[in-house]
Design a protein around this nucleic acid. Structure first.
Length: 350
DNA sequence: AATAAGGACTCAGAAACGTAGCG
DNA sequence: ACGCTACGTTTCTGAGTCCTTAT
């Protein structure tokens, strides 16, 4: 009962020393927000370090660039053989990247192909800045495919460096920071105040999706995906037909009104128009659903929503556009993010 | 001072579960 | 009404991060 008392009564921040519900989470996002203030100098710093005379610093600077730009994981070394052969940034091997001086009209392209956490494949082609490209060429020189790309670098060394740049900063903070800032930017860019709730929710999902893609959160295509897509398409087709019929209905009613000019016929016109409008809205909603579903085929939104996105951004967005929070967070999630729902106003900025 | 071992905590996707809506 | 199914939610369990401590 003691636990229960703690949970219900004490964990609201009123009692010093008793952590409030979600405090750990809150702290995590506060660290990420502090990174926002210094990220520019950090970027300037690693740019400079690309030109460093020390190989170790060069490697650290390029790795950090990947972690920042591509939201790669740190990549600790782990015992060989015992575990699956997966890598992160610092444990990348020569065989995991290919360099293209130009590709598809872009310059200095790095092609990544490796297995990351949980053996999820990371495949990406990225145009990088010229010094990075040249550094990579240098790091790969005279090496076998199975050699470490960053042979001078460890996660410990990298994190020590980051700790010096900002209190509490580690490699994974970049993931949190970039995920949250991307959500905020995308929401700003995609939300149209004129849209109805369904349209705004689609925008939210798209912003969420941009983050999931950045963090490489994948899922296998659900077994029932093709089937349920078909069903949805059938619904759309049926609805289209209904809309057409309703259009004819309107026309018919209008013709009748022209002939008779009586009030009853006029009321009928209004009725038919209303019906048409309702059906058109339903059709639009279905189309939105279909788009959303297709775009989401292989992307898992849950992980970023739960672990990377500062919930206050979402809460603020909901408040600003009058979206009920239940449309985004289910009951469990609302409990998890209760602190944020409580804390954030519509003008919260990450 | 560098490295290894261990462990707390966080993150990852999918299987299992429950239920609302459908015919 | 009644079973079915598709879907959202919860649970499960393993993987990865990063810190502390021992050597």
């Amino acid at each position: 009962w003691c636990k229960g008392w703690n949970k219900d009564r004490a964990r609201d921040g009123k009692y010093p020393g008793v952590p409030f519900q979600g405090e750990k989470d809150w702290q995590k996002y506060e660290v990420a927000r502090r990174l926002k203030d210094v990220v520019h100098t950090i970027r300037a710093q690693y740019r400079k370090d690309w030109k460093s005379k020390e190989l170790k610093k060069q490697q650290r600077a390029v790795a950090l660039y990947f972690i920042d730009k591509l939201a790669l994981r740190a990549g600790n070394e782990k015992e060989e053989g015992e575990t699956a052969d997966t890598v992160g940034c610092c444990s990348l091997r020569v065989e995991h990247i290919q360099l293209h001086r130009r590709l598809d009209g872009q310059e200095h392209v790095v092609e990544f192909d490796f297995l990351g956490k949980d053996s999820i494949r990371y495949y990406n082609k990225v145009s990088v800045e010229k010094p990075v490209f040249e550094n990579l060429q240098l790091f790969m020189k005279n090496k076998d495919p199975t050699d470490d790309l960053f042979d001078q670098l460890t996660t410990t060394f990298l994190n020590k460096h980051l700790q010096r740049l900002m209190d509490g900063l580690t490699a994974k903070v970049f993931r949190t920071y970039n995920a949250s800032i991307t959500l905020q930017e995308q929401l700003k860019a995609l939300t149209n105040p004129e849209d109805n709730v369904a349209g705004k929710l689609l925008s939210y999902n798209r912003a969420n999706r941009a983050v999931a893609i950045l963090c490489n959160h994948q899922r296998s295509v659900p077994k029932t995906f093709a089937r349920s897509m078909e069903v949805l398409q059938e619904k759309i087709d049926a609805k289209k037909k209904q809309v057409e019929e309703a259009q004819e209905g309107v026309k018919k009613a209008e013709d009748e009104f022209k002939e008779t000019k009586d009030a009853k016929a006029e009321a009928n016109v209004e009725k038919k128009k209303k019906l048409l409008k309702r059906l058109e809205e339903q059709l639009a909603k279905l189309n939105v659903q279909a788009t959303d579903k297709e775009e989401n085929k292989q992307i898992a939104l849950g992980t970023s929503k739960l672990n990377y996105l500062d919930p206050r951004i979402t809460v603020a967005w909901c408040k600003k556009f009058g979206i009920p929070i239940e449309k985004i967070y289910n009951k469990t999630q609302r409990e998890k993010f209760a602190w944020a729902i409580d804390m954030a106003g519509e003008d919260f900025e990450f």
